[in-house]
Nucleic acid binder design. Structure first.
Length: 467
RNA sequence: UGCCGCAUAGCUCAGUCGGUAGAGCAGCUGACUGUUAAUCAGCGGGUCGUAGGUUCGAGUCCUACUGCGGCAGCCA
């Protein structure tokens, strides 16, 4: 057995008469008097292979072991299919059953199960139509993202996952420590841990899992011009929503000599090109999502690819919201952060496609965003998408040493922790921009899946770290 | 973390006014010369999330807890 072989995806391209071998897991078996049909899948494509077993070809005892969930290899020939639903099918001469799956206990059935139930058996759900499709699209999407950046001269950089700087400012952080090991895991260890000095810990100071690679990415951009990271990110927020994970994957490009306009152009090109790649290379999977998950998916994706994103300032958005006449639960006024209901109205009702909002009030945005001349707003941008809300958040960074230093102090942040970040502004500073894109949010958008836990193989959320 | 909802067979659900439990699918047995979520007949399958309470009697009403989901906040 070698990994180099013909996958089920390739068997559909073989002409009738071709001898072939098929490996996979059984989806379902249908028996008739003189013939049995077995659908098998190997994850290589959306379609199942129909294997036909004529009575007497294989022993009755062996046939009985070919049940839903079993892993098998069939040897036989590709033949023309007299039935409807497929051009060719696989006529089996012999079979090997590698692993049986007791039908009385195998939890997946032919009929669909709820996503909530499938989350509890996440180790088996990749065998079903939906999650096979999700994870194929996830794989292709990651590839398309790397391709997009590499094609444009970006360098893929790897920023640290463990960080000792408590200054990324993007949310609650997970601590990383070896003190627990030193103290054992008993109840007395907790008390001892509290008394410990972090100077005795592994890194000699408090360390955390990263909440963003941006600050490190900026350092590489100011030397390599265009860079991006694509890696795991951790937020310890106690969020229980359909669009938050404690562990997720984030794409963060950072560009030197680039203004907010260039940043917006990149974000728009990015979404369009990656979606086009998926339309070209995952059509069967997307067709399935369009049929069974989100009826307007394909028309929405084509629309995104073919039309410009609406761009407007925060100030204009607030104006439009105020004049909308909608009975919002939360009032809209200049200086307030936009609520989900406001973002939804803008993207879904007012504009009907992705919207890029820019120039937010500085007090609701991070310290590193470049201040505008009006003294009130910063060069921030949020890309809002219908159905899922904020998909991209980015900004032009503050490149002026004095302004940045003043802002750090104003916001009560520890100046000394930012020595290297400020150094970038002392030596060869340059206007630069970047954004962060949640990979799983993007996947929700392109698959139509409604819960972020269903676009990652094994989700980490508050109270949940199974598998 | 707040608000709302849900928890009954392996899965998806029904269960009326409080009177000791039902369907479809899956499973098992059999039938059927080519099925496509195959079809047909029969069979087995339940501590009604947990713990209390009200009541002659609780799947049903009340309280708490746990789990899950939705919305909001935090954000990507």
């Amino acid at each position: 057995m070698d990994y180099r072989r013909t996958y089920i995806r390739d068997l559909f391209d073989l002409p009738p008469g071709n001898p072939a071998t098929a490996y996979g897991w059984v989806k379902t078996r249908r028996d008739s008097k003189g013939v049995s049909f077995v659908q098998i899948a190997d994850g290589s494509c959306f379609k199942d292979l129909q294997v036909v077993i004529e009575a007497g070809t294989i022993p009755e005892e062996t046939l009985k072991r070919i049940t839903t969930g079993a892993s098998v290899r069939f040897d036989g020939d590709i033949v023309e299919s007299p039935g409807e639903g497929q051009e060719t099918e696989f006529k089996a001469h012999s079979v090997e059953v590698y692993g049986e799956a007791d039908p009385a206990h195998y939890p997946l059935q032919k009929k669909g199960a709820s996503f909530e139930f499938l989350r509890e058996i996440a180790h088996l759900r990749a065998r079903g139509n939906t999650f096979g499709a999700v994870f194929r699209v996830r794989s292709r999407c990651a590839y398309a993202i790397h391709k997009f950046f590499i094609d444009r001269g970006f360098h893929n950089i790897h920023t640290p996952i463990i960080t000792a700087s408590d200054c990324e400012g993007a949310g609650a952080m997970f601590a990383v420590t070896t003190l627990l090991d030193a103290q054992g895991h008993g109840p007395e260890a907790k008390a001892a841990l509290r008394a410990m000095e972090f100077s005795e810990d592994f890194f000699g100071k408090p360390a955390y899992l990263t909440v963003s690679g941006q600050l490190d990415a900026e350092t590489l951009a100011l030397g390599m011009t265009n860079v991006y990271t694509f890696g795991p990110t951790f937020r310890a927020e106690n969020s229980g929503t359909s669009r938050h994970l404690a562990e997720f994957w984030m794409i963060e490009p950072e560009m030197a000599f680039c203004s907010l306009e260039g940043n917006m152009n990149l974000a728009e090109e990015f979404l369009k090109e990656v979606i086009q790649d998926l339309l070209d290379n995952c059509s069967a999977d997307l067709e399935f999502f369009n049929q069974r998950i989100e009826p307007d998916l394909l028309s929405t994706l084509h629309h995104v690819v073919n039309s410009g994103f609406e761009r407007m300032t925060y100030t204009e958005a607030v104006d439009r919201l105020a004049k909308s006449g909608e009975p919002f639960e939360f009032p809209v006024f200049w200086g307030s952060d936009l609520q989900s209901e406001h973002e939804r109205w803008l993207t879904e009702i007012d504009v009907g496609r992705p919207v890029i909002l820019t120039d937010y009030p500085k007090d609701i945005k991070a310290f590193y965003m470049r201040q505008n001349e009006d003294g009130k707003t910063v060069r921030a941008m949020d890309v809002l998408a219908p159905r899922i809300g904020e998909i991209i958040g980015g900004s032009q960074r503050e490149e002026r040493y004095d302004v940045l230093e003043k802002r750090i102090v104003e916001m009560g942040l520890p100046l000394e922790a930012y020595w290297w970040y400020l150094d970038l502004r002392r030596f060869g500073s340059v206007p630069h921009s970047g954004f962060g894109l949640g990979f799983e949010r993007m996947l929700m958008y392109v698959t139509g899946m409604k819960n972020i836990r269903d676009v990652i193989p094994f989700h980490r959320t508050p109270g949940s770290a199974e598998f």
